[in-house]
Design a protein around this nucleic acid. Structure first.
Lengths: 340, 340
DNA sequence: CTGAAAGCGCTTACAG
DNA sequence: CTGAAAGCGCTTACAG
C-alpha cells in the first residue's frame, strides 16, 4: 500500500492540508514545517496520487499527443519519432507527463473522442497536418486546450507551430534555378496535407519569380514514402526533367534510386533536392541536398506552447513558424561529388 | 462543464449506482434500465471521468511504456517506432490507454520513479534490454505489474517478450558458412544489451558447430547506429574478412558503405548479413540479407501480456520468445545480384 | 501560518 | 434488480 498525505502528515506531526501545501509550493507555510515535511517526504520517497490530485484540483499535469496513423508506413519516416522525442523531452523538463495516441483511422471517431474527453488530460497536441481533420473540428467546439503541429489553413484562432514549408521549398527550387536547371520537376506530398500544399506553393513561387512557366506534367503527387518517391520519379522520367524537388527526403531517396536504375546520374543528369534532412540524407551517395526543418524542436515548442496555454488560457492565438535551412550537399550539383 | 454520473442518472430517471453498473457491464441490471441508460449515454456522448474512476476503483486502464533514450540516435533506428506502434495498436483494441516516457538518463532516478508510482498507471512495459537496468531493479521490489521487452538475463520471475536473437544470429552466420565464407566477422551491439549478448552467442555457436575457431580480432562492438557500423567495418578490414554479420541492419548499411568506399564489392569480396529487416534493407544496393524479427508484434504481445497480468496477477511468469526468420537477398551472395 | 471540513466524480459493499 | 452511503486521496476555501 502506497503512503498517503495523511500518513505523511502523521509522521511529520502536522495536518494533511499543510503537507499538501508544501507539496504544491504554497507560500503560506513556515520554514520550519516545510523543512520537516520535506524531510519525511524524501525519506519515505512519497509520491502523491495523481488520479486523486487530478480529481481534486481539476488538472492532472498530463498532456495528450495524438499522431495519425493514416499513412501505413508512417514510422518508416523519422518525422514522427523525432516529433515524439521533442514533445517528450520538453514535457520531462517541465515536469508533465505525456499520453500517446497513435490514431488508427478506424478508431478515430470512437476511441479518440472517448479518450480526449475523459478528464485525464489537461490539453492535447495534434500532429494532424491534414487540411480537414475531424478531430480538430471536434476540438474547436470544446474547451480542451490544444495546439496543432502543422498550421491550420483557415481558423485564425487555433494555436499551431509549424516550419516554414513554403519558404523552404522556395529556397530549394530557387537554388536549382540558379544552378542553371531548366526543367525542374516536383514530387509533392499528398494534396490534403498542409505541408504538401505549402511546399507545392514554394515550388510554384520560385518558378514564377524566375519567369519559368509551370508545367503541370512535371508535378506529381506521392505519399511521402520511399516507394512513392520511386514510382513518382519513374513517371516523371518521360518528361525529361533535369532536376527534381521532392517534398521529403524519404521520397527523394526513392527518386534517386529510380534515376540510377535508369542509368542516369545524380546530379549530372538530374539534380535532386529533398526536404527534412533526415540522418540518411548525408549518408547516401550522392549525399542529398535538402531543406532542414527542426522537427524535434517543433515538438518541444508545441509542448511549451500548450503548457503555457493551459496555465494561461486567455493567451492570444500562437502561430509559430520556425525557419528552415537549405543544406547544400552533392545531389544538387553545387558541390562536386567526391567519388571513391 | 462535462456531465457526471449524477447527471446521467437524473436524465435516465435512475441512480448513480445503476448508471455506474451499466457502464461497467455489471450483470445485475434489468434489460429495461440498461437500455434506457445506454440511450442517454450515447445521446449526450457521456465520458466517465477516468481520474475519478481510477481513484475509486484502484485501477485506471492506463499502461506505461518506458523507452530508454540512452543511445543518442535511438530514433534513427526504426526499432522503437515499430515497438511503440505495436504496443499502441494492441492497447487501442483492448481499450486501454498508453502513457509514454522516453527516459533520458539524467531523469532516470528522479522522474521515472516519480512517475511510476503515482497511482496513475496499472502496469508498465519497459523496453530496457540492458543487462543491468536500475528501473527494472526498482520495479522488482514493488507491486506494480511490468513486462520487459527483451529477456531478463537472470531473474526467472520477470515476465518478458523477446525475439530469438541467438537463433537468428546463429542461422545468419551458419548461412554464410554454408556459402563457403571462411573469415566471418561480427559487428556486435553493445555488450551491456541483452540482444547484443544473445546475437554474439548465436555467432559463436554457429562457428563452433562448424569447427571454425573464433578469431577475437574479427569481433567488434558497435552501438547499433549506422556510423557505428561504418567505423567498425573500417576497423575490421585490416583482418581481411570475407563476410560480416552485423547485429542490426542500420549497422550493416554503414558497413556496406565502408566496404564500397574501400573499392571492394558486396557480396563478391565481402558478404554482409544484417538483423531486423527494416524497410531500408530491401531497398539498398545490393539488397540486404537479414534476420527478420517481428518488432511490432513484440510490442503488441508485450501489451497483451501486461493487460492479462493486470487482470490476473497470479499468472506464472511469461517468457515469450518469438521466432526470427532469415530473409535471403543479394548481400550474402546466395542470389546473384541484378545490377542495372 | 495552520487545521477541520467539504468536495472532486466515480465504485462498491450493504441492505433491501 | 436497485439505491443510499461510505470511501478512494487529494485540493482548497474557510475560519481561526
Amino acid at each position: 500500500m502506497p503512503l498517503t498525505l495523511e500518513d505523511i502528515a502523521r509522521i511529520a506531526g502536522t495536518s494533511r492540508s499543510t503537507v499538501s501545501r508544501v507539496i504544491n509550493g504554497d507560500q503560506n507555510v513556515s520554514e520550519a514545517t516545510r523543512t520537516k515535511v520535506m524531510d519525511v517526504i524524501s525519506k519515505v520517497n512519497f509520491q502523491p496520487n495523481l488520479a486523486a490530485r487530478g480529481l481534486a484540483a481539476g488538472h492532472t499535469g498530463i498532456l495528450g499527443l495524438v499522431i495519425p496513423m493514416g499513412v501505413s508506413a508512417i514510422f518508416a519516416d523519422p518525422f514522427f519519432p523525432l516529433l515524439i522525442q521533442g514533445v517528450s523531452g520538453q514535457c520531462n523538463s517541465r515536469d508533465v507527463s505525456v499520453m500517446l495516441w497513435l490514431a488508427e483511422p478506424e478508431f478515430e471517431r470512437r476511441t479518440i473522442n472517448n479518450v480526449l474527453y475523459n478528464g485525464l488530460i489537461d490539453g492535447v497536441i495534434i500532429a494532424s497536418m491534414l487540411t480537414d481533420d475531424s478531430l480538430v473540428d471536434a476540438l474547436r467546439n470544446k474547451s480542451l486546450p490544444f495546439v496543432l503541429v502543422g498550421r491550420h489553413p483557415t481558423d485564425e484562432h487555433i494555436h499551431y507551430v509549424d516550419s516554414d514549408n513554403r519558404s523552404g521549398a522556395y529556397q530549394a527550387v530557387l537554388h536549382m534555378v540558379r544552378m542553371g536547371r531548366k526543367r525542374i520537376a516536383c514530387i509533392n506530398g499528398p494534396a490534403n496535407m498542409i505541408a504538401g500544399m505549402d511546399r507545392a506553393r514554394g515550388y510554384r513561387d520560385a518558378l514564377k519569380e524566375r519567369g519559368i512557366s509551370l508545367q503541370p506534367e512535371l508535378v506529381v503527387e506521392a505519399d511521402f514514402t520511399d516507394p512513392g518517391g520511386y514510382a513518382a520519379m519513374k513517371q516523371l522520367m518521360q518528361y525529361r526533367p533535369d532536376a527534381v524537388f521532392a517534398a521529403s527526403d524519404t521520397m527523394a531517396i526513392g527518386a534517386v534510386r529510380a534515376i540510377h536504375e535508369l542509368g542516369l546520374r545524380v546530379p549530372e543528369d538530374i539534380a535532386v533536392v529533398g526536404f527534412d534532412d533526415i540522418p540518411m540524407a548525408s549518408r547516401i551517395t550522392p549525399s542529398l541536398t535538402t531543406v532542414r526543418q527542426p522537427i524535434s524542436r517543433i515538438g518541444a515548442i508545441a509542448a511549451d506552447t500548450l503548457i503555457d496555454l493551459i496555465e494561461n488560457p486567455s493567451d492570444r492565438p500562437q502561430h509559430i513558424i520556425l525557419p528552415t535551412e537549405l543544406v547544400i550537399r552533392e545531389s544538387c550539383g553545387a558541390i562536386h561529388p567526391v567519388r571513391s
